[in-house]
Amino acid sequence: MMKRNGTGWLFASPYLLYAVIFFAIPLIWSMYLSFTDWNLISPVYYFKGFDNFIEAVKHPGVQAAFFVTFKFMAAFVPMVIASSLLVALVIHGLPKFKGLFLIGFFLPYLASGVVSSLIVKGLLSHNSAFNVFLRKFGIEVDWLSTPLSALLVVAAIIAWKFTGYYALILTAGFESISKDVYEAAAIDGVTPSQRFWKITLPLLYPALFTVLILSIGVSFGIFTEVYQLTGGGPNYATNTWQMEIFKQAFTNLSAGYASAVAIIASVVTFASILVIRKLLEMWGKRNGWV
């Protein structure tokens, strides 16, 4: 360990500069803007007190963003947990090709949200093989114009992207469980369901917890796929916070109002993640997994 305050600060200086210019100043500016009616262009603007916030809370786009985030979470989190768990369950401890599988499953993580959205748009287009196939059974779905299916499609795209990444974490979790534990359990005559609930799950819990927290975090930051596929529609069914803020700030140019929405979004995000985290920890503790 070195003791020279100067060099320490010198090495940390990129962060300090960055934190001032791209964190502290924007943060204060954002709060200031949220009390104005500034439109991103006009030199004149007025203070409106808390009007922006009151207006925002009443706005259908903001209300939709609030609920869409949780609906999205309800669809995305189980999807991605199930798929990554399945992948990890199948490939952990494989004697050969495990690395190849892990790399292969990781590839979707590299996809641009624009590209995966365009591919899915093609796969679900009116005359696509998939829709033609469904039509044989008399099923006709306009995937992106139906509120529920549009939400599910976006959730599925993002689950596809993250499955391999989370499977990596879960595989490491599975492999950290010692074989001796299972052997001892087998001698004691433990049934498969007991084995899963009493041994695998508690020992996998730390990895599972990580994946849960990460996937919940993802749910609050959806933009690209929604922008590319639905624009937040149909009728706000996929209107995420980022989408709403982008529309208000850069399409409607209501910078003041959009800043208020961004503050609401941040508070909701921060509080939700905190609460969910606490609940997960309590759940783990109550079951004796932690």
Binding site: M2, G8, W29, F220, A249, S266
Partner: peptide, 30 residues
């Protein structure tokens, strides 16, 4: 690897900022 006054503060600031919802910064950064 360095021991200097304010290190813990910077360390905590990094962690805080990392988990801070970045969306609030979009408009003013622009």
């Amino acid at each position: 690897k360095m021991n200097f006054k304010g290190r813990d503060f910077i360390n905590n600031a990094v962690l805080f900022q990392m988990f801070f919802p970045a969306i609030i910064l979009l408009i003013p950064t622009f």
